[in-house]
Write a protein that binds this DNA or RNA. Sequence first.
DNA 1: GTCTATATGGTGATAGAC
DNA 2: GTCTATCACCATATAGAC
Lengths: 203, 203
Amino acid sequence: MTDRERRQVGRPATIEAPRETILAHAASLFATMGYENTSLQDVARAVGISKAAVYHYFSTKQQIYDEIVVVMLQQLEAFVRERVEKAERSEDGIRAFMVAHATFMEENFTEFVTLLHGHGGTSRVRSPGEIAARDSYETVLRTMLQQAQDRGELNIDNVASASRAILSMLNWMSRWFRPDGERRAAEFAEDYFKLLYMGFKRR
Amino acid sequence: MTDRERRQVGRPATIEAPRETILAHAASLFATMGYENTSLQDVARAVGISKAAVYHYFSTKQQIYDEIVVVMLQQLEAFVRERVEKAERSEDGIRAFMVAHATFMEENFTEFVTLLHGHGGTSRVRSPGEIAARDSYETVLRTMLQQAQDRGELNIDNVASASRAILSMLNWMSRWFRPDGERRAAEFAEDYFKLLYMGFKRR
DNA sequence: GTCTATATGGTGATAGAC
DNA sequence: GTCTATCACCATATAGAC
Protein backbone atom coordinates (compact mmCIF):
# COMPACT_ATOMS: atom_id res chain seq x y z
CA MET A 1 0.00 0.00 0.00
CA THR A 2 1.29 3.43 -0.90
CA ASP A 3 0.94 6.68 1.01
CA ARG A 4 -1.59 7.81 -1.56
CA GLU A 5 -3.91 4.93 -0.84
CA ARG A 6 -3.50 5.47 2.88
CA ARG A 7 -4.40 9.13 2.71
CA GLN A 8 -7.17 8.95 0.11
CA VAL A 9 -6.04 12.29 -1.32
CA GLY A 10 -3.54 12.99 -4.04
CA ARG A 11 -3.60 16.74 -4.14
CA PRO A 12 -0.98 18.77 -2.31
CA ALA A 13 -2.23 19.88 1.09
CA THR A 14 -0.92 23.18 2.33
CA ILE A 15 -1.39 24.02 5.97
CA GLU A 16 -0.49 27.07 8.00
CA ALA A 17 2.10 27.06 10.78
CA PRO A 18 3.16 23.58 9.69
CA ARG A 19 5.75 22.99 12.39
CA GLU A 20 3.39 23.92 15.21
CA THR A 21 0.56 21.88 13.70
CA ILE A 22 2.75 18.83 13.38
CA LEU A 23 4.02 19.21 16.94
CA ALA A 24 0.50 19.52 18.36
CA HIS A 25 -0.81 16.44 16.59
CA ALA A 26 2.31 14.46 17.39
CA ALA A 27 2.06 15.35 21.08
CA SER A 28 -1.53 14.23 21.20
CA LEU A 29 -0.74 10.91 19.55
CA PHE A 30 2.38 10.34 21.66
CA ALA A 31 0.38 10.92 24.84
CA THR A 32 -2.47 8.65 23.85
CA MET A 33 -0.71 5.80 22.05
CA GLY A 34 2.83 6.19 23.35
CA TYR A 35 5.83 7.42 21.38
CA GLU A 36 6.86 4.07 19.94
CA ASN A 37 3.34 3.04 19.02
CA THR A 38 2.85 6.21 17.01
CA SER A 39 4.22 6.03 13.50
CA LEU A 40 5.12 9.04 11.40
CA GLN A 41 2.39 7.74 9.13
CA ASP A 42 -0.08 8.35 11.95
CA VAL A 43 1.26 11.84 12.50
CA ALA A 44 1.12 12.68 8.80
CA ARG A 45 -2.43 11.38 8.49
CA ALA A 46 -3.57 13.39 11.53
CA VAL A 47 -2.10 16.57 10.06
CA GLY A 48 -3.37 15.80 6.59
CA ILE A 49 -0.05 15.72 4.74
CA SER A 50 2.29 13.00 3.53
CA LYS A 51 5.02 11.39 5.56
CA ALA A 52 7.65 12.94 3.31
CA ALA A 53 6.21 16.38 4.02
CA VAL A 54 6.72 15.78 7.74
CA TYR A 55 10.35 15.04 6.96
CA HIS A 56 10.60 18.38 5.26
CA TYR A 57 10.09 20.09 8.64
CA PHE A 58 11.76 17.63 10.97
CA SER A 59 14.68 15.41 10.17
CA THR A 60 13.90 12.60 12.63
CA LYS A 61 11.05 11.40 14.78
CA GLN A 62 13.18 11.98 17.86
CA GLN A 63 13.57 15.63 16.90
CA ILE A 64 9.80 16.07 17.00
CA TYR A 65 9.71 14.61 20.48
CA ASP A 66 12.61 16.70 21.75
CA GLU A 67 11.04 19.89 20.49
CA ILE A 68 7.73 19.18 22.21
CA VAL A 69 9.52 18.60 25.49
CA VAL A 70 11.74 21.66 25.45
CA VAL A 71 8.98 24.01 24.35
CA MET A 72 6.67 22.74 27.08
CA LEU A 73 9.29 23.03 29.79
CA GLN A 74 10.03 26.63 28.84
CA GLN A 75 6.36 27.56 28.74
CA LEU A 76 5.79 25.81 32.06
CA GLU A 77 8.59 27.76 33.70
CA ALA A 78 7.33 31.08 32.37
CA PHE A 79 3.78 30.28 33.49
CA VAL A 80 4.83 29.25 36.98
CA ARG A 81 7.33 32.08 37.53
CA GLU A 82 4.73 34.69 36.75
CA ARG A 83 2.40 33.32 39.45
CA VAL A 84 5.07 32.66 42.03
CA GLU A 85 6.46 36.17 41.88
CA LYS A 86 3.20 37.68 43.05
CA ALA A 87 3.34 35.79 46.34
CA GLU A 88 4.43 37.65 49.44
CA ARG A 89 4.86 35.03 52.15
CA SER A 90 7.00 31.94 51.62
CA GLU A 91 4.09 29.57 52.02
CA ASP A 92 2.11 31.47 49.41
CA GLY A 93 4.96 31.09 46.96
CA ILE A 94 5.10 27.36 47.44
CA ARG A 95 1.37 27.02 47.13
CA ALA A 96 1.40 29.18 44.00
CA PHE A 97 4.10 26.99 42.51
CA MET A 98 2.13 23.82 43.12
CA VAL A 99 -1.17 25.20 41.90
CA ALA A 100 0.38 26.79 38.80
CA HIS A 101 2.18 23.58 37.89
CA ALA A 102 -1.04 21.59 38.18
CA THR A 103 -3.03 24.16 36.23
CA PHE A 104 -0.50 24.21 33.43
CA MET A 105 -0.55 20.44 33.32
CA GLU A 106 -4.31 20.38 32.96
CA GLU A 107 -4.37 23.07 30.28
CA ASN A 108 -1.69 21.34 28.23
CA PHE A 109 -2.47 17.78 29.13
CA THR A 110 -1.36 15.83 26.09
CA GLU A 111 1.91 17.67 25.68
CA PHE A 112 2.51 17.30 29.39
CA VAL A 113 2.03 13.57 29.35
CA THR A 114 4.50 13.38 26.49
CA LEU A 115 6.92 15.50 28.46
CA LEU A 116 6.78 13.39 31.59
CA HIS A 117 6.27 9.88 30.43
CA GLY A 118 8.13 10.11 27.18
CA HIS A 119 9.46 6.87 25.83
CA GLY A 120 12.24 4.36 26.18
CA GLY A 121 13.73 2.95 29.34
CA THR A 122 16.24 4.05 31.94
CA SER A 123 19.01 4.15 29.34
CA ARG A 124 17.31 6.86 27.30
CA VAL A 125 19.52 9.77 26.33
CA ARG A 126 18.05 13.17 27.14
CA SER A 127 18.85 16.03 24.80
CA PRO A 128 21.05 18.82 26.20
CA GLY A 129 18.17 21.23 25.72
CA GLU A 130 15.88 19.07 27.81
CA ILE A 131 18.39 18.72 30.62
CA ALA A 132 19.00 22.45 30.75
CA ALA A 133 15.28 23.25 30.72
CA ARG A 134 14.54 20.75 33.50
CA ASP A 135 17.35 22.03 35.68
CA SER A 136 16.22 25.58 35.19
CA TYR A 137 12.68 24.74 36.21
CA GLU A 138 13.65 22.76 39.27
CA THR A 139 15.88 25.60 40.40
CA VAL A 140 12.84 27.86 40.69
CA LEU A 141 11.37 25.64 43.40
CA ARG A 142 14.62 24.85 45.10
CA THR A 143 15.58 28.50 45.43
CA MET A 144 12.23 29.33 46.92
CA LEU A 145 12.50 26.59 49.52
CA GLN A 146 16.05 27.50 50.42
CA GLN A 147 15.15 31.14 50.95
CA ALA A 148 12.19 30.23 53.13
CA GLN A 149 14.48 28.15 55.29
CA ASP A 150 17.32 30.70 55.40
CA ARG A 151 14.94 33.43 56.46
CA GLY A 152 13.47 31.20 59.11
CA GLU A 153 9.99 31.54 57.67
CA LEU A 154 9.41 27.83 57.25
CA ASN A 155 10.72 24.65 58.77
CA ILE A 156 12.40 22.91 55.83
CA ASP A 157 15.47 21.20 57.12
CA ASN A 158 16.01 19.12 53.99
CA VAL A 159 15.51 21.33 50.97
CA ALA A 160 16.56 18.72 48.42
CA SER A 161 14.15 16.21 49.83
CA ALA A 162 11.26 18.67 50.06
CA SER A 163 11.85 19.79 46.51
CA ARG A 164 11.85 16.21 45.25
CA ALA A 165 8.71 15.44 47.24
CA ILE A 166 6.77 18.34 45.78
CA LEU A 167 7.79 17.63 42.20
CA SER A 168 7.06 13.93 42.66
CA MET A 169 3.50 14.53 43.75
CA LEU A 170 2.91 16.96 40.91
CA ASN A 171 4.59 14.86 38.26
CA TRP A 172 2.79 11.68 39.25
CA MET A 173 -0.54 13.49 38.83
CA SER A 174 -0.12 13.16 35.08
CA ARG A 175 -0.39 9.41 35.54
CA TRP A 176 -3.79 9.24 37.17
CA PHE A 177 -5.38 12.64 36.55
CA ARG A 178 -8.00 12.86 33.80
CA PRO A 179 -8.97 16.29 32.46
CA ASP A 180 -12.59 15.21 32.07
CA GLY A 181 -12.92 14.25 35.73
CA GLU A 182 -14.88 16.14 38.35
CA ARG A 183 -12.11 17.91 40.18
CA ARG A 184 -9.63 20.38 38.72
CA ALA A 185 -5.92 19.65 38.96
CA ALA A 186 -5.44 22.81 41.00
CA GLU A 187 -7.69 21.41 43.74
CA PHE A 188 -5.54 18.33 44.09
CA ALA A 189 -2.48 20.55 44.26
CA GLU A 190 -4.10 22.57 47.06
CA ASP A 191 -4.74 19.37 49.00
CA TYR A 192 -1.11 18.37 48.62
CA PHE A 193 0.05 21.74 49.79
CA LYS A 194 -2.08 21.61 52.93
CA LEU A 195 -0.78 18.18 53.72
CA LEU A 196 2.84 19.27 53.39
CA TYR A 197 2.30 22.50 55.25
CA MET A 198 0.49 21.07 58.25
CA GLY A 199 2.03 17.62 58.47
CA PHE A 200 0.04 14.82 60.03
CA LYS A 201 1.58 14.79 63.45
CA ARG A 202 -0.99 15.29 66.17
CA ARG A 203 -0.30 18.34 68.34
CA MET B 1 19.35 -13.47 8.54
CA THR B 2 17.99 -16.45 10.41
CA ASP B 3 17.75 -17.00 14.14
CA ARG B 4 20.61 -19.46 13.89
CA GLU B 5 22.99 -16.84 12.53
CA ARG B 6 21.84 -14.37 15.13
CA ARG B 7 22.38 -16.73 18.01
CA GLN B 8 25.58 -18.41 16.79
CA VAL B 9 24.43 -21.72 18.26
CA GLY B 10 22.37 -24.41 16.65
CA ARG B 11 22.15 -26.88 19.48
CA PRO B 12 19.08 -26.99 21.65
CA ALA B 13 19.59 -25.01 24.82
CA THR B 14 17.77 -26.32 27.86
CA ILE B 15 17.46 -24.02 30.82
CA GLU B 16 15.94 -24.51 34.23
CA ALA B 17 12.87 -22.63 35.43
CA PRO B 18 12.35 -21.35 31.91
CA ARG B 19 9.37 -19.13 32.62
CA GLU B 20 11.06 -17.35 35.51
CA THR B 21 14.30 -16.97 33.57
CA ILE B 22 12.49 -15.45 30.63
CA LEU B 23 10.55 -13.08 32.88
CA ALA B 24 13.68 -11.89 34.65
CA HIS B 25 15.58 -11.16 31.45
CA ALA B 26 12.57 -9.56 29.84
CA ALA B 27 12.03 -7.28 32.84
CA SER B 28 15.63 -6.16 32.75
CA LEU B 29 15.47 -5.37 29.04
CA PHE B 30 12.07 -3.65 29.31
CA ALA B 31 13.36 -1.43 32.10
CA THR B 32 16.55 -0.48 30.29
CA MET B 33 15.44 -0.19 26.68
CA GLY B 34 11.70 0.25 27.11
CA TYR B 35 9.02 -2.30 26.27
CA GLU B 36 8.56 -1.37 22.63
CA ASN B 37 12.28 -1.12 21.94
CA THR B 38 12.86 -4.62 23.22
CA SER B 39 12.20 -7.33 20.66
CA LEU B 40 11.48 -10.93 21.51
CA GLN B 41 14.68 -11.59 19.61
CA ASP B 42 16.50 -9.59 22.29
CA VAL B 43 14.77 -11.53 25.04
CA ALA B 44 15.51 -14.87 23.41
CA ARG B 45 19.16 -13.97 22.93
CA ALA B 46 19.53 -12.84 26.54
CA VAL B 47 18.07 -16.13 27.78
CA GLY B 48 20.03 -18.19 25.29
CA ILE B 49 17.14 -19.82 23.46
CA SER B 50 15.32 -19.19 20.20
CA LYS B 51 12.44 -16.86 19.66
CA ALA B 52 10.13 -19.79 18.98
CA ALA B 53 11.08 -21.32 22.31
CA VAL B 54 9.95 -18.14 24.06
CA TYR B 55 6.61 -18.55 22.32
CA HIS B 56 6.37 -22.02 23.77
CA TYR B 57 6.08 -20.52 27.27
CA PHE B 58 4.23 -17.29 26.52
CA SER B 59 1.75 -16.72 23.77
CA THR B 60 2.32 -12.99 23.31
CA LYS B 61 4.81 -10.35 24.27
CA GLN B 62 2.09 -8.56 26.18
CA GLN B 63 1.54 -11.65 28.30
CA ILE B 64 5.16 -11.53 29.42
CA TYR B 65 4.73 -7.94 30.48
CA ASP B 66 1.48 -8.57 32.31
CA GLU B 67 2.96 -11.45 34.25
CA ILE B 68 5.93 -9.40 35.40
CA VAL B 69 3.62 -6.69 36.65
CA VAL B 70 1.19 -8.91 38.55
CA VAL B 71 3.89 -11.03 40.16
CA MET B 72 5.76 -7.94 41.32
CA LEU B 73 2.66 -6.30 42.76
CA GLN B 74 1.81 -9.41 44.74
CA GLN B 75 5.34 -9.78 46.07
CA LEU B 76 5.43 -6.08 46.92
CA GLU B 77 2.24 -6.34 48.92
CA ALA B 78 3.42 -9.39 50.84
CA PHE B 79 6.77 -7.74 51.57
CA VAL B 80 5.20 -4.51 52.78
CA ARG B 81 2.41 -6.14 54.80
CA GLU B 82 4.89 -8.18 56.78
CA ARG B 83 6.78 -5.05 57.85
CA VAL B 84 3.77 -2.90 58.49
CA GLU B 85 2.14 -5.41 60.82
CA LYS B 86 5.02 -5.21 63.26
CA ALA B 87 4.44 -1.52 63.88
CA GLU B 88 2.66 -0.44 67.05
CA ARG B 89 1.95 3.25 66.67
CA SER B 90 0.21 4.65 63.60
CA GLU B 91 3.17 6.76 62.58
CA ASP B 92 5.44 3.73 62.75
CA GLY B 93 3.11 1.85 60.40
CA ILE B 94 3.21 4.62 57.83
CA ARG B 95 6.95 4.92 58.09
CA ALA B 96 7.29 1.16 57.75
CA PHE B 97 5.10 1.21 54.67
CA MET B 98 7.19 3.88 52.99
CA VAL B 99 10.53 2.35 53.89
CA ALA B 100 9.44 -1.14 52.87
CA HIS B 101 8.10 0.07 49.54
CA ALA B 102 11.37 1.85 48.80
CA THR B 103 13.46 -1.10 49.89
CA PHE B 104 11.49 -3.49 47.72
CA MET B 105 11.88 -1.13 44.80
CA GLU B 106 15.63 -1.03 45.22
CA GLU B 107 15.95 -4.79 45.60
CA ASN B 108 13.86 -5.46 42.52
CA PHE B 109 14.76 -2.41 40.53
CA THR B 110 14.40 -3.53 36.94
CA GLU B 111 11.10 -5.31 37.49
CA PHE B 112 9.87 -2.31 39.41
CA VAL B 113 10.68 0.12 36.63
CA THR B 114 8.82 -2.14 34.25
CA LEU B 115 5.90 -2.22 36.64
CA LEU B 116 5.64 1.52 37.03
CA HIS B 117 6.64 2.98 33.74
CA GLY B 118 5.33 0.24 31.55
CA HIS B 119 4.68 1.17 28.00
CA GLY B 120 2.15 2.82 25.75
CA GLY B 121 0.21 5.98 26.38
CA THR B 122 -2.81 7.00 28.38
CA SER B 123 -5.04 4.71 26.32
CA ARG B 124 -3.24 1.58 27.44
CA VAL B 125 -5.46 -1.22 28.63
CA ARG B 126 -4.51 -2.66 32.00
CA SER B 127 -5.11 -6.35 32.56
CA PRO B 128 -7.79 -7.27 35.14
CA GLY B 129 -5.10 -8.97 37.21
CA GLU B 130 -3.06 -5.79 37.30
CA ILE B 131 -5.99 -3.64 38.33
CA ALA B 132 -6.95 -6.01 41.13
CA ALA B 133 -3.38 -6.23 42.40
CA ARG B 134 -2.95 -2.45 42.38
CA ASP B 135 -6.20 -1.86 44.20
CA SER B 136 -5.32 -4.44 46.79
CA TYR B 137 -1.97 -2.84 47.44
CA GLU B 138 -3.30 0.69 47.68
CA THR B 139 -5.93 -0.48 50.14
CA VAL B 140 -3.21 -1.47 52.59
CA LEU B 141 -2.07 2.13 52.87
CA ARG B 142 -5.51 3.68 52.74
CA THR B 143 -6.80 1.48 55.55
CA MET B 144 -3.87 2.35 57.73
CA LEU B 145 -4.36 6.08 57.22
CA GLN B 146 -8.08 5.86 57.83
CA GLN B 147 -7.59 3.99 61.10
CA ALA B 148 -5.00 6.47 62.31
CA GLN B 149 -7.46 9.26 61.65
CA ASP B 150 -10.47 7.45 63.15
CA ARG B 151 -8.57 6.70 66.33
CA GLY B 152 -7.41 10.29 66.53
CA GLU B 153 -3.78 9.26 66.53
CA LEU B 154 -2.82 11.38 63.57
CA ASN B 155 -4.09 14.50 61.86
CA ILE B 156 -5.07 13.26 58.41
CA ASP B 157 -8.18 15.09 57.34
CA ASN B 158 -7.97 14.00 53.70
CA VAL B 159 -7.12 10.30 53.58
CA ALA B 160 -7.47 9.97 49.81
CA SER B 161 -5.14 12.88 49.23
CA ALA B 162 -2.57 11.70 51.77
CA SER B 163 -2.59 8.23 50.28
CA ARG B 164 -2.06 9.58 46.78
CA ALA B 165 0.71 11.87 48.01
CA ILE B 166 2.63 9.05 49.66
CA LEU B 167 2.34 6.71 46.70
CA SER B 168 3.28 9.50 44.30
CA MET B 169 6.53 10.24 46.09
CA LEU B 170 7.41 6.57 46.27
CA ASN B 171 6.44 5.79 42.70
CA TRP B 172 8.27 8.74 41.25
CA MET B 173 11.46 7.53 42.96
CA SER B 174 11.78 4.88 40.29
CA ARG B 175 12.28 7.67 37.79
CA TRP B 176 15.32 9.31 39.30
CA PHE B 177 16.70 6.78 41.79
CA ARG B 178 19.76 4.77 40.71
CA PRO B 179 20.65 1.61 42.65
CA ASP B 180 24.37 2.32 42.25
CA GLY B 181 24.10 5.74 43.87
CA GLU B 182 25.39 6.66 47.31
CA ARG B 183 22.16 6.68 49.27
CA ARG B 184 19.77 3.78 49.79
CA ALA B 185 16.17 4.11 48.70
CA ALA B 186 15.08 3.58 52.30
CA GLU B 187 16.91 6.74 53.36
CA PHE B 188 15.01 8.82 50.84
CA ALA B 189 11.78 7.26 52.07
CA GLU B 190 12.69 8.22 55.66
CA ASP B 191 13.23 11.80 54.55
CA TYR B 192 9.85 11.86 52.89
CA PHE B 193 8.20 10.47 55.98
CA LYS B 194 9.74 13.11 58.23
CA LEU B 195 8.61 15.83 55.87
CA LEU B 196 5.03 14.57 55.85
CA TYR B 197 4.97 13.93 59.55
CA MET B 198 6.33 17.29 60.66
CA GLY B 199 5.06 19.55 57.90
CA PHE B 200 6.97 22.70 57.10
CA LYS B 201 4.84 25.19 58.94
CA ARG B 202 6.84 27.13 61.50
CA ARG B 203 5.49 26.83 65.05
C1' DG C 1 10.50 -28.45 23.99
C1' DT C 2 13.52 -26.65 20.96
C1' DC C 3 14.77 -25.81 16.59
C1' DT C 4 14.91 -23.66 11.40
C1' DA C 5 12.44 -21.22 8.25
C1' DT C 6 8.96 -18.26 6.82
C1' DA C 7 4.56 -15.59 6.60
C1' DT C 8 2.96 -11.06 6.82
C1' DG C 9 3.18 -6.47 7.38
C1' DG C 10 4.72 -2.09 9.37
C1' DT C 11 8.84 1.19 10.25
C1' DG C 12 11.94 5.29 9.72
C1' DA C 13 13.92 7.42 6.27
C1' DT C 14 15.21 8.86 1.27
C1' DA C 15 15.12 9.81 -4.00
C1' DG C 16 13.58 12.41 -7.32
C1' DA C 17 9.55 14.32 -10.08
C1' DC C 18 6.67 18.39 -10.13
C1' DG D 1 7.08 22.27 -0.32
C1' DT D 2 4.56 18.50 -1.43
C1' DC D 3 4.04 14.49 -3.67
C1' DT D 4 4.66 9.16 -5.21
C1' DA D 5 7.38 5.35 -4.83
C1' DT D 6 10.69 2.71 -2.77
C1' DC D 7 14.66 1.07 0.20
C1' DA D 8 16.40 -1.63 3.72
C1' DC D 9 15.15 -3.44 7.74
C1' DC D 10 12.88 -5.52 11.83
C1' DA D 11 8.73 -6.82 14.20
C1' DT D 12 5.36 -10.44 16.07
C1' DA D 13 3.86 -14.64 15.38
C1' DT D 14 3.36 -19.41 13.22
C1' DA D 15 4.37 -24.09 10.76
C1' DG D 16 6.29 -28.14 10.97
C1' DA D 17 10.64 -31.10 11.47
C1' DC D 18 13.18 -33.46 15.03
